[in-house]
Design a protein around this nucleic acid. Sequence first.
DNA 1: GATGAATGAGATTTCATTCAT
DNA 2: AATGAATGAAATCTCATTCAT
Lengths: 221, 221, 221, 221
Amino acid sequence: MNKVDKRSLKESNIIDVAEKVFAKRGFDNTKMEDIAAVLGISKGTIYFYFNSKENLYMAITYRAYEQLISLFHRTIHESKDLNGLETVMNIMRAFMDFSEEHYIYGEAMLNYYSFVRTTGQGAKLNKLTEGMKDSLYYQKVMSIQGTPVEITVKEIMRGVEDGSIRTGVKPQMIYLNAWALVIGFMKLNDTAVSKKQTIMKINVQDWKQYILEETRNMIKS
Amino acid sequence: MNKVDKRSLKESNIIDVAEKVFAKRGFDNTKMEDIAAVLGISKGTIYFYFNSKENLYMAITYRAYEQLISLFHRTIHESKDLNGLETVMNIMRAFMDFSEEHYIYGEAMLNYYSFVRTTGQGAKLNKLTEGMKDSLYYQKVMSIQGTPVEITVKEIMRGVEDGSIRTGVKPQMIYLNAWALVIGFMKLNDTAVSKKQTIMKINVQDWKQYILEETRNMIKS
Amino acid sequence: MNKVDKRSLKESNIIDVAEKVFAKRGFDNTKMEDIAAVLGISKGTIYFYFNSKENLYMAITYRAYEQLISLFHRTIHESKDLNGLETVMNIMRAFMDFSEEHYIYGEAMLNYYSFVRTTGQGAKLNKLTEGMKDSLYYQKVMSIQGTPVEITVKEIMRGVEDGSIRTGVKPQMIYLNAWALVIGFMKLNDTAVSKKQTIMKINVQDWKQYILEETRNMIKS
Amino acid sequence: MNKVDKRSLKESNIIDVAEKVFAKRGFDNTKMEDIAAVLGISKGTIYFYFNSKENLYMAITYRAYEQLISLFHRTIHESKDLNGLETVMNIMRAFMDFSEEHYIYGEAMLNYYSFVRTTGQGAKLNKLTEGMKDSLYYQKVMSIQGTPVEITVKEIMRGVEDGSIRTGVKPQMIYLNAWALVIGFMKLNDTAVSKKQTIMKINVQDWKQYILEETRNMIKS
DNA sequence: GATGAATGAGATTTCATTCAT
DNA sequence: AATGAATGAAATCTCATTCAT
């Protein structure tokens, strides 16, 4: 294994662990020490690979986007024989599963999105600070952050063209709404800690099913 | 003014300010000092009225629920001549406006809900710690936290009875879904900091309108 | 004793100690902890009074200038019956004694001077950083830092007028030269640590005497 | 090129760069990494050639003395037809130019001198620690550190003998005084960073001239 | 009731140095 | 010889909380 591979393998290992620890304790309540301890290495080593806690978090964010994008691509590929509506529904189902499985990814992407949208307000409102913008990972995320919408919007438009999705609603609106639903589902379900099966006496899987069905009704032509 | 009134007036003043400061900077990034400074009093005084930062936050949470409940009651009262569907839609609209106006309340209620639901998992994901459960405000919130669902569910059932709302979906499911949508709207819109008018090229008010319309379609009979 | 007095007394106590510790170990090698330990208080308390290590150092610098100025004033006052030359010589002798007694003051003033003169070069070359400029003490020092030269120059001019000091050399040049000599004397003698009586087989007090005599020869008319 | 030559060439390269970096940022603010980066090599390599940061600094100190000595020798050689006074003045001028050109050398020599003179006081005022004394470079510097004085003193004595320099002042005193002036000039001018032309409204080159003239007056017979 | 001084337990980050390869 | 990953011992600074007055 060459140096580059070795390095990125190690980085990857660190992210693997950091992900879990951040997911369990939250960003502010996680100490670099905690992550290092789980890894069995020293704090210094983490700083050798990532230059700050924020940057490490940003690396996770990058991975979140990468994985989401690849998930979307895979889903689209697998749905290539289906019409636009079915494809979009498959994407949304995949998105929900993804959020359930990787709470931290959902969080990270939301965080990034808010940060970018509200930045320049001065203070440190987010876990992210202005200085973050110089980080390499920040840049990398910036470059791919728009992809999920783009590719989904494309499928929505395909659905409109093939007549499976209704006209009159902007594709972005559909995406936004779906994302909001995923976020609300994730937050109320709080998949970070609990694997509780019910919420307000409603079975979580039933709810998920309901969300998908209603979304379908909402967008189908 | 008697002692009790004087005390609760002062408490109220502190909450007023704390609310704004927490809303602007977030819980972790807000120092007790910051709040004291805005109030023009000393940190010690805040501790005299509230015993900890968490408890102060819990007081805000309590107020959030109080206000939401009173808003729901008021809305129901004003809709007493309308059918169930219209009433429920008015409640939801009120909820969305409320979240837009008081981001921190939305946050606080969500936080509380997650905490209660996931507690005992050992994690300190939430801002709230186990010790919090002994707090007076925690107890107070506990006692009213179920009210918004309850009264909304009642209206949904009225709608089912009067034929304006479709049958076959549990009222709780409807509430849950609406709440999820409100949360997603609030988080993506991030009304804490920005007053941006658009998001992903979508006009925020249009989106709100769309959410309400679609929710109506989803639940009407 | 009122609050203000109490506070400034405490500040003064801290400076007293910090001065000695910085003098003994140097700025970089002194930990805030060291100073706190000698004072028998906690680090936090020092940060309560001074906001940073740099600012504490700046407070010492301010005191250095204050004391030097008051020394110069006192010397001038005591020399009011003497001619300009004698007065200037008394000032210089006082300056040398001052540097011998308070090495750290000499250092601090030199540091400040260099910082101001060379600032804007970007990097952290000095113990002082750019951020320092916002510090209250920095401002205070800025406002009095020119005084020693000014009042000395005035006496030099008096000497020129009363015929005791030669013409043809700018008063600032005389001051600069004297200061350089004081610095060189201080640095080679290194009065921070040693109380050695000789240097290169030369008796330190003889050397001091020599410096003063030669300076007199240099400037007398 | 044999091994020894190759090694010392490499060492020399490292010193070349280290010199500049230390000069620009100061000892404490310079990281080994910085030096390695400029050299385009790894930190490990620097440690292969020098055993510690201090030792590297000591190597610079050694070079400083070497170069100063060779400069003095050269100057004396070139002044062999002049009398003692002129020779001594040429030495001093050379010394001043040297300090202006290589601030770090002036610093390093002063540092070493202070360290040797004040050592055993327990303090860690200096950049140098007690452990340093075992270093090879420390020993090497020790062996030549007295040379500049010695050879200058010899010229001063020649001046006394040929009648160009006044009697009654110990040659060491003259050297000490000149060195002090060079140090003061260097520190106030702070030639490490600024190339400012004036200081306190005095033109730096005029001041240098003044220092030399006055020194001449001080020592000539 | 109110103040603000004091605390102390961290948290992030830095960096000289070591060492396996 | 050279590398660069890894360490670990600090050091600065923060802030919720306490408490004497």
